[in-house]
Computed example of a mutant assay.
Amino acid sequence: MANDNTVFVGLDVHKESIVAAYSVGFGEVSSIGSIGVLERDIERLCKRMQSKASNVVFVYEAGPCGYGLQRQLSRAGFACHVCAPSLIAKKAGDRVKTDRRDAEKLVKALRSGDLSFVHVPDERDEAFRDLVRAWSGAKEDLKQAKQRLKSFLLVHGVRYTGSADWREAHRRWLSRFTFPEVWSQLAFEEHRRSVEDRLTQCQRLEQVLRDAAPDWRFYPVIQALQALRGVQFTVAVGVISEAGDLSRFDNPRQLMAWLGLVPSERSSGASVKKGGITKAGNSVARKLLIEAAWSYRYIAKVSPIIQKRHEGLPKPIIDRAWDAQLRLCRRFRKLILQGKNRNVVVTAVARELAGFIWDIARRTPVAAA
């Protein structure tokens, strides 16, 4: 790829501008400057680059502008990569950052093969992921609304004697409680209504997800993953919508690293120091797996709920899910008996659970994109 027949183009993409730089082979890097963000501006740049070499390769950093530019260039027949900005090498003494220098740096890193590219989902997969993220955002809003209401009640010394689990009994008690002061009562009602509204939104979005999932090409994988303990529908949908096709990972260790569940390390010479997990990957999928891993603190068993999820699944998938349950439950108990912190234990179990998810996903055929 790195020869005089290839022109490497780096794009520093922003909402209102795109700054470009290029080099032909390993020649001098030249700056083009701002080219505009309209479709005709991109087409003009492509024609200009085609006049310099027969093969044109573009790259830009993943960011808030999404993958629209990558898809436009791909439809035009050009190779366009999207790189991970957190994995771009930086000089410790470099204190000058401009759009022009960023574009030139992308060109140099692209032609030397030093960039890590991110997976670009197709438009239908991304649309389904948008729906899942809307549900995930509603869950976060619900969590914050509940916390605000709890804090409000605590400030006023109001305590619920039962289990404050937001089920019918708890919500019925909240609807009947009143404050002697009118203004406090108004504030309380607004907090309570906020929780109720977020609950309704979460339920509505979850139902939309359940209705839409059968039309998605990864639905067989979602069904297969639910054979695993702790991986109910919302967890399976969340993980697959974020990770996409798990066959793009050559082994389970790559998936674990992408999820940020592998230990960090800082070693030099004979000194080897390992720390907490890197948290370098997808935070949404990682949180879902950690939530699922808590279910393995109990003894291994096939509950009626899991038994129902097994209906219609191939026997090899069910057997693999049982193997996972035996191993992970045993792993949880063993680490607890060794005196490990419970959060450390559940993270270790989540890491191994990711390996079983990778294995089950690769055993499940899906439709082509």
Rank of each mutant, 00 (worst) to 15 (best):
A2H: 13
A212H: 11
P85Q: 02
R172P: 00
S31M: 06
A368L: 11
R71E: 00
D130R: 12
A2I: 15
V195P: 08
V7R: 05
L131N: 01
A243L: 15
A138D: 09
S295D: 06
K287M: 15
A369N: 09
T347G: 14
I360Y: 11
F188V: 03
K334H: 10
K146W: 04
Y60E: 03
N55I: 10
S74R: 15
S303T: 15
V195A: 06
N282Q: 03
G25K: 04
D130E: 13
E291L: 14
S74C: 12
E104Y: 04
K143N: 11
A62T: 04
Y67I: 00
V132D: 05
A270V: 01
D99P: 03
L205W: 02
V29M: 09
A79R: 07
Q338V: 00
K91I: 15
W358T: 08
I360K: 11
A348E: 07
K52G: 06
A224I: 03
A103Y: 02
V82N: 08
K273G: 03
A103Q: 03
I18N: 01
D245T: 03
A300F: 12
R40P: 02
R204Q: 15
C202H: 01
R309C: 11
R40K: 13
P304I: 11
D125N: 02
V237K: 02
D319C: 08
S30H: 10
R266C: 10
V59I: 05
R148A: 11
K334A: 13
K97A: 02
F8S: 04
V235L: 09
F177Y: 14
R176P: 00
A367R: 11
R193Y: 05
S303W: 04
V221K: 08
C83F: 05
R171N: 13
T234W: 00
D41E: 07
S151Q: 12
A103C: 02
Y22D: 03
Q203R: 13
S271H: 11
G66C: 04
S34H: 13
R266D: 14
D4F: 11
T364M: 08
F332G: 08
D12F: 06
A20Q: 06
K301V: 14
D12S: 06
A236L: 05
F356R: 08
R286G: 12
T278Q: 09
V182M: 02
E126W: 00
G113D: 04
M1L: 09
L228E: 15
R253V: 00
V29A: 14
A134F: 14
T234Y: 02
F179K: 01
D12V: 07
I18L: 00
G137Q: 14
Q223C: 14
L153F: 01
R217T: 05
R362M: 07
Q144T: 03
A300R: 12
V302T: 12
R342V: 15
Q223K: 15
